[in-house]
């Protein structure tokens, strides 16, 4: 009798899971290098993520040292790159074909590239919430609780208990605590992290040309090699 009951429950769970599984699938891992782990909702044990791993609502992703992960959302191919030593949880809410996304950042550095986003794209840290209205931006959250937003393109609406600011293209916002308004300044080049995907063995070849009036003109050639891992 007990065995039959367990069998029925198992079958029901399988059916329930199969019925609901597709609705929960919201993103896919398009790149995973190094130690990248996935923890499903309501599970304790984590599993390694490989390329092609399908992600669901409430999935938690952790990256180790020298490890990166790139995921894309299935409804609008919005890209989220997760850099080394980072952790986040994907929260989604689906209505018809539109998925509202909230990336809950635990720690680390992230890059988002939104292409014609559908629904709301939001990033939540312990100190702030950023609603994205643009296309490309960085989020860096540190152990000491600071969060830095770097807007590459578009607009980011950042809010916390202290208020709300609008971050524009080419600006950086620093949020020190949830009770302080984010501080905004112009982004400097050295602030923008170079991701694993962007790092290349770049060699610069400079060739000088002498002009008729002893002028010198320099031709700079960037030679980009692919990273050999």
């Amino acid at each position: 009798m007990k065995a039959n009951f367990k069998f029925v429950i198992t079958i029901l769970l399988l059916i329930f899971n199969s019925l609901s599984a597709d609705d929960d699938m919201v993103a896919i891992t398009v790149k995973a290098r190094g130690q990248v782990k996935l923890t499903r909702a309501n599970q304790v044990k984590s599993t390694p993520i490989k390329n092609g791993q399908i992600l669901e609502d409430q999935d938690k992703i952790d990256t180790g040292p020298s490890s990166t992960c790139a995921i894309k959302f299935l409804d609008d191919k919005s890209l989220l790159r997760i850099r080394e030593n980072s952790s986040c949880t994907i929260e989604t809410k689906k209505e018809k074909n539109v998925v509202d996304k909230n990336i809950f950042v635990n720690i680390g550095s992230f890059f988002a590239d939104l292409f014609k986003p559908k629904g709301i794209f939001q990033v939540t840290t312990p100190t702030s919430v950023a609603s994205v209205k643009g296309t490309q931006f960085w989020i860096l959250h540190f152990f000491d609780g600071r969060t830095i937003y770097i807007c590459i393109k578009g607009l980011i609406d950042i809010s916390n208990d202290a208020g709300r600011v609008l971050l524009r293209e080419g600006q950086t916002a620093e949020v020190d605590s949830r009770f302080e308004l984010p501080k905004i300044h112009i982004t400097t080049e050295d602030e923008i992290p170079i991701g694993e995907e962007d790092r290349t063995d770049v060699r610069v070849l400079e060739i000088g040309f002498g002009g008729p009036n002893n002028q010198v003109k320099m031709l700079k050639v960037d030679i980009k090699d692919l990273v050999n891992e």
Partner: peptide, 24 residues
């Protein structure tokens, strides 16, 4: 919706992930 690889994207030979969405 072409999720991956995108049009004219460059990838490594061992990291191809083909994903296409057709929710509409």
């Amino acid at each position: 919706i072409i999720i991956s690889p995108e049009e004219d994207e460059s990838i490594f030979t061992d990291e191809l992930v083909i994903t296409v969405s057709f929710a509409e």
